[in-house]
Structures are given as C-alpha cells and as structure tokens.
Amino acid sequence: MKPSPSRKHLLSKYKEANGLIKEFLKKDKNAKFIDVYSLMLNKDGSVMSEIFVDDNLHMNAKGYAIWKKAMQPYLKK
C-alpha cells in the first residue's frame, strides 16, 4: 500500500498492513516485498505531494518513476 495525501488518516494502518504483508511473503521463496511506501516520503517523513495528480490519490509520472526504479530489478528480463 502506498501513502497518499488524500488518505493521510489511513497511513498508520497502511504501514502496519505493509509490515504484515512483508512478513507473510518471507515464507514464499518466489515472492519479494518491494517497499515503495518509504520511497514516497520526504526526509521529514511526510508524503511527497509532487508525485500525485490533483486528487492527491493517484500518482503522476514522477510517482510511477519511483515505482519503476524500485521494481525493475525484480522483473524478469
């Protein structure tokens, strides 16, 4: 789950759920948890607003570029 400014009230639940998903996936040798959540935060821990479109929920090209960089090493060539 990703952090979004429009879902600020759910961020702590998203962090908790991501932790549970990460632990669950450790049991599967063919699965890997990719943490995009932390990559979408500023140094002060706030959500990067510049990677979202006007609705503050969906990402723009900058947001998807973050995901692409994080996920590309795990994709089959």
Rank of each mutant, 00 (worst) to 15 (best):
M1F: 11
M1P: 13
K2N: 14
K2F: 14
K2P: 10
P3Q: 00
P3R: 01
S4C: 11
P5D: 08
P5M: 07
P5Y: 09
R7L: 05
R7C: 02
R7W: 00
R7S: 13
K8L: 11
L10V: 08
L10T: 06
L10Q: 14
L11Q: 15
L11M: 14
S12W: 04
S12N: 14
Y14M: 11
Y14E: 10
K15E: 14
K15L: 15
K15H: 03
N18V: 02
N18S: 08
N18F: 03
G19C: 04
G19M: 05
L20Y: 04
L20R: 08
K22P: 07
K22T: 01
E23R: 11
E23G: 02
E23P: 04
E23A: 12
E23D: 13
F24Q: 09
F24W: 10
L25P: 06
L25D: 02
K26A: 02
K26D: 02
D28A: 11
D28K: 07
K29D: 14
K29V: 07
N30S: 08
A31W: 00
A31T: 06
K32A: 07
F33P: 06
F33L: 06
I34E: 04
I34F: 01
I34Y: 02
I34M: 04
D35C: 07
D35K: 05
D35M: 01
D35R: 07
V36L: 14
V36A: 10
V36T: 15
Y37F: 15
Y37N: 00
S38M: 11
S38H: 14
L39N: 02
L39K: 10
L39M: 04
L41T: 09
N42C: 00
N42G: 05
N42H: 05
K43I: 06
D44L: 09
D44P: 11
D44H: 03
D44T: 05
G45V: 11
G45P: 12
S46G: 10
S46C: 01
S46V: 03
V47R: 00
V47H: 01
M48H: 01
M48T: 01
S49K: 15
S49C: 01
E50I: 05
E50N: 15
E50K: 09
I51Y: 06
I51L: 02
F52D: 00
F52M: 01
F52I: 00
F52L: 03
D54P: 06
D55V: 05
D55L: 08
N56H: 12
N56C: 08
L57I: 09
L57Y: 13
H58G: 12
M59W: 06
M59H: 09
M59I: 04
N60H: 10
A61H: 07
A61D: 14
K62C: 06
G63I: 04
G63V: 03
Y64T: 09
Y64D: 04
A65N: 11
A65T: 13
I66K: 07
I66Y: 03
W67A: 08
W67Y: 08
K68L: 13
K68H: 14
K68M: 12
K68T: 04
K69N: 10
K69Y: 02
K69S: 15
A70F: 07
A70P: 03
M71N: 07
M71I: 15
M71D: 07
M71S: 13
Q72F: 11
Q72Y: 10
Q72G: 00
Q72A: 15
P73V: 03
Y74M: 13
L75M: 15
K76R: 15
K76I: 13
K77E: 12
K77P: 11
K77Y: 06
